[in-house]
Nucleic acid binder design. Sequence first.
DNA 1: ACCGCAACCTGTACGC
DNA 2: TGCGTACAGGTTGCGG
Length: 300
Amino acid sequence: MPELPEVEVVRRGLDRWTAGRAIASAEVLHPRSVRRHAPGPADFAGRLAGRTVRGPRRRGKYMWLPLSAEQDEAPGEALLAHLGMSGQLLVGEPDREREKHLRVRIGFADGGHDLRFVDQRTFGHLMVTDLVPDVVGGPDGPGLVPEPIVHIAADPLEDAFDPEAFFRALRRRRTGIKRALLDQSLISGVGNIYADEALWRARIHWARPTETMTRAEAARVLEGAQEVMEAALAVGGTSFDSLYVDVDGESGYFERSLDAYGQRDQPCRRCGTPIRRDEFMNRSSYSCPVCQPRPRRGRY
DNA sequence: ACCGCAACCTGTACGC
DNA sequence: TGCGTACAGGTTGCGG
């Protein structure tokens, strides 16, 4: 379940079930799921055994579990996770049946609920990596982030997010607004669903050139993204099917509240015009032809 | 340096 | 029933 609200739902579940517990062992059942862990699956498992899991953190669509220090090493390491298109982190009784797409299993020393990474399409991944000072910083100073995600921008729901910096970066770009929203080095956490929803709320077409965006329009898009992601988070995220579930396997309810994404031919909730689906980067883009008029010179 | 596209996977839905 | 095609919530790496 892969955009910011869905990842945050999972992060909260991990906080409840795994924080403070000691890992007994990790088992990698599919090497592709740890392909970004350069030293390989055996090293991945070896680094986890015996470590205690601290409170989980998140930036955009990435989340990580800081690990207790091995010796005096500072600032330490973390288990980093990205769910990709179909990844799930599930918590449950250790002796329950193995899921068909179980990729990594992590057992705890207390013998209680285990943590499983299940991923049908294997676009997601796990890795153990160093924590480094955050380049973004925030009100509490620079925090620590996993080294592989230092290039990921702050997400619009975190304190470190700087709307003015986002606007300046937007104006420097030469692309369409939706491409920019999906670029995780500009703004993180937004994917295909919430990009369409944010643009519908802001009444801006997806092909609008970034260099012509006004400060007020950029603010509308940002507010749209913040509001729609907060609303989705409040009801457990968006789940079209059982692939997108929280750590207990439960689906979210935001699908019912989508105004644009997946609403082809449905009447726009503002003006009644049927929602249009366009091809976009080998994917889809949904918009209202009246509320979100196409710009004269759009940028794909 | 930036932009756009192909590639990486498995599964489901649908038309014929 | 079977086969082919289209599509699915993401990111990286490469060519231009």
